[in-house]
Design a binder for these strands. Structure first.
Lengths: 368, 368
DNA sequence: TCGCAAAATGTATGCGCTTACAATCACTCA
DNA sequence: TGAGTGATTGTAAGCGCATACATTTTGCGA
């Protein structure tokens, strides 16, 4: 790899000025076909690729959008092993493991982010942007967000992944879109979903399938904003149905499968409910396990619903009724908002609210 | 948002030269504490964020690594609907769908890429880089790869996602690492896995659990390089065990669940096998369905194995024995290779071969 | 108090590209 | 054939930052 070719090299080889080279690449029609060919020849011969940095500097825009979200990555603490230095020859080409069901299963939140990312990338591409991503790892010394902010035309951040004051500062420089957080009194553009409304509707569906007397709710941890919204939606729906909160058995879990299992056991001890609305899928699946172990049939004896739409919910038996975030669309909408603001920097801050998908499956349907 | 602040603005406000501002940010120790504080004050007050483009240009390195892979995204053809312009007020906050198990399930290849990406991001972060991603969409007019190549210090591409001549040209400018493709006679750095060896080992495990006489292999489509390698591994193992290829029932599927189902039905018609080694998980799962429908028990009557390690394989009943790509590590190794080459541009091209994980689960174990 | 080395800061240049503006060219029509 | 025009190309000035080198300041010992 010799020194990288620059416009100057191309220009010299083609016998034109650098301006012409630049034109060939930016506005081909402004240059005479013969000249253009000559320049393109040189470009190919030299393997010339324009420097993004130089372009960005000259154009005052980079054509890059940034996506930043918090990390939930277990492998973060993975050994810093050096795959490159290790002697290849002696390593076996495979390992054999007695594997359980969840060997290597990624964190659910990562799956969520994967899809958001995919949507963002798709839309970015459609709009002619490239995507840069960063994951927060709570390392204050390494200003990853700021680093990214300096390289992009616009930034998408997952709610709460960046401290308010930092975000405010970045927003001073480039447009910022906040993803899936509550629309607070800030001046950013937002993309959110209607957690509470969807939970209300789901609850209504459950009420239509179960005796209102035996309703149970399995909440998430107290400090979870999502969990809180889901509770609110549930509470609203039962209130509307004339059911008092006190008439509902409310348990609290921590979003894990195990906590769902425990909660269901407790419910069974108190006398099995007619329906269990869980604040997420994991807990719902854990509860279903517990019910099964106790000989209680789902959905025949008890209706169960989850929230999130993880893949295991679709593969469980019975398949789990749940609510899914429109993750792809979250990503796409965020990019659209950025693109819009780059065109109209002074438009009013805007919040796009995307519909959630309530996926009605077996677990919530009373048999005919 | 007023005009973005630059070094000049910060310098002026702090009463120093731009060089000092730059030093405060790059080598804080080279500046007297009093001055440093003054500068940092200005930085904060002005919301200054250094321009990545300018930095990149001046330093002659961007601190960004690129990851490029082919797209398998169904939503690619999604309507270009404009979420931003649509009137929010009238859209319902949710939709209700009678959902089947695979509503909205992402393409398996995407899941693979998601994890590679995650590994790459993790390692990039550890090495002080930021990650830029691009998805190929077969649009020759839009040179996304080249676009990315111009903005990064190094590029990782999935095998076959970029035409050879294009890749060769890019490699002229920046280091390139090819992911998970066969190590051909090129001069790039590679990260690969030992597909064939792992399949051989898996086959050996199966042979230990089943009558060699009743062995069946369910191959992938003819044009799949992965499929071919897996067949080779299988063939090697049975040869080694003294079994002739002709003594094995070989069927061909197209990697879909349905094709696995069909193949198993055909096998049943011929007289059920003692073991079925499938070239991927989907087909294996389809086959298991077919066996179950026919009253043939897995693993009691027939042992089944898959390949890929998709999540459904862990959730199926029985859980499916399979082989999983070390996806996270693929991403990490790729970044490590790039980092290495950026330090030693003239080192010999290198191929890192990562071990596959054979996940032994229920479907392949003969009951005691 | 002065001299001097080391520390701190400033000056000036260039990174590779885009683009406004100036200069030149190729044609047209008279 | 010459003037006038639009098309084509060249010239030159930044874009915002890092940094080599020059200059000034500081700290210290005598």
């Amino acid at each position: 790899m010799t020194r990288k070719a620059t416009v100057y090299d191309v220009a010299e080889r083609a016998g034109v000025s650098i301006a012409t080279v630049s034109r060939v690449l930016r506005q081909p029609d402004a240059v005479r076909p013969v000249t253009r060919e000559r320049v393109l020849d040189s470009v190919a011969a030299l393997g010339y690729v324009p420097s993004g940095s130089a372009r960005g500097l000259a154009e005052r825009r980079t054509g890059v959008l940034g996506l930043y979200f918090p990390g939930f990555d277990a492998s973060e603490d993975a050994p810093v092993f050096d795959m490159v230095a290790d002697d290849q020859a002696e390593a076996p080409p495979f390992t054999v493991e007695q594997a359980s069901a969840d060997t290597g299963a990624p964190h659910p939140t990562m799956l969520f982010l994967d899809e958001v990312l995919r949507g963002a990338e798709l839309e970015a591409w459609k709009q002619g942007f490239v995507l840069m991503i960063g994951v927060g790892r709570g390392d204050p010394a390494r200003e990853t967000v700021r680093d990214i902010a300096g390289r992009v035309d616009g930034l998408m951040v997952l709610a709460q992944s960046v401290p308010d004051e930092v975000l405010a500062r970045l927003a001073q420089r480039i447009p910022v879109v906040v993803l899936s957080g509550p629309a607070r009194g800030d001046s950013y553009d937002h993309v959110t979903v209607s957690n509470a409304e969807a939970m209300s509707e789901l609850t209504r569906l459950v009420l239509a399938q179960a005796d209102p007397g035996g309703l149970a709710f399995l909440a998430g941890p107290e400090d979870s904003p999502d969990g809180a919204q889901r509770w609110e939606g549930f509470a609203a729906a039962i209130a509307e149905a004339g059911i008092a909160t006190d008439d509902v058995m409310v348990l609290r879990g921590d979003f894990t499968r195990a906590s769902g299992h425990r909660a269901a056991e407790e419910l069974i001890a108190r006398g099995a409910p007619a329906a269990l609305v869980a604040a997420n899928d994991q807990m719902a699946l854990g509860a279903i396990d517990a019910f099964r172990s106790a000989g209680i049939r789902v959905p025949d004896d008890v209706r169960v619903t989850g929230f999130d739409g993880i893949e295991a919910a679709a593969l469980s038996r019975p398949t789990l009724t749940t609510v899914r975030q429109p993750m792809i669309d979250l990503g796409r909408a965020a990019v659209q908002l950025l693109a819009r603001r780059l065109e109209q920097p002074d438009a009013e801050p805007m919040t796009v609210r995307l519909p959630l998908q309530i996926l009605v499956r077996e677990s919530s349907q009373r048999p005919e």
